[in-house]
């Protein structure tokens, strides 16, 4: 497998990794709290994308049949609905996290009248 095939053949992973890194960067490096949350959302969405993409399969894919026994069932070989279902739950979790984070931001904004981390952390910033 050449390098090109390696990249193109697994493009779904590359996309999710790039997205995840963008989100990760925003969460860690941005000083504005809203941007952090935006980053968090991108980060989480990237993971959803990853899960969904491992469930899908183009051409020649079959429905899931799990044989009895303990052999590894390669989930990448068939169209698997389970990751999608898992992601429904994960989305619920993520939305709740988002909600809690937004509520926190509101609390912080009311207290400090700013959402820039630098200004908040300044001593005596509370109003």
């Amino acid at each position: 497998m050449t390098n090109m095939e390696f990249i193109i053949g697994k493009y779904n992973y590359w996309i999710y990794i790039v997205l995840m890194m963008i989100g990760f960067y925003a969460m860690i490096a941005k000083r504005n709290l809203v941007k952090k949350i935006v980053g968090m959302n991108i980060f989480q969405t990237a993971i959803i994308l990853f899960f969904v993409s491992i469930g899908s399969k183009k051409g020649g894919a079959t429905i899931p049949i799990i044989r009895a026994g303990d052999e590894a069932v390669n989930a990448a070989q068939y169209i698997n609905p389970l990751p999608h279902v898992l992601m429904l739950t994960a989305i619920v979790v993520m939305v709740s996290t988002f909600g809690v984070a937004m509520a926190l931001i509101l609390m912080i904004y009311r207290k400090y009248r700013t959402l820039e981390e630098d200004e908040i952390l300044k001593p005596g910033a509370e109003t």
Partner: peptide, 12 residues
């Protein structure tokens, strides 16, 4: 969650 995803990929 990513860990779970990777494990699921290979084990189902």
């Amino acid at each position: 969650l990513l860990g779970v995803g990777y494990l699921y990929m290979v084990t189902g």
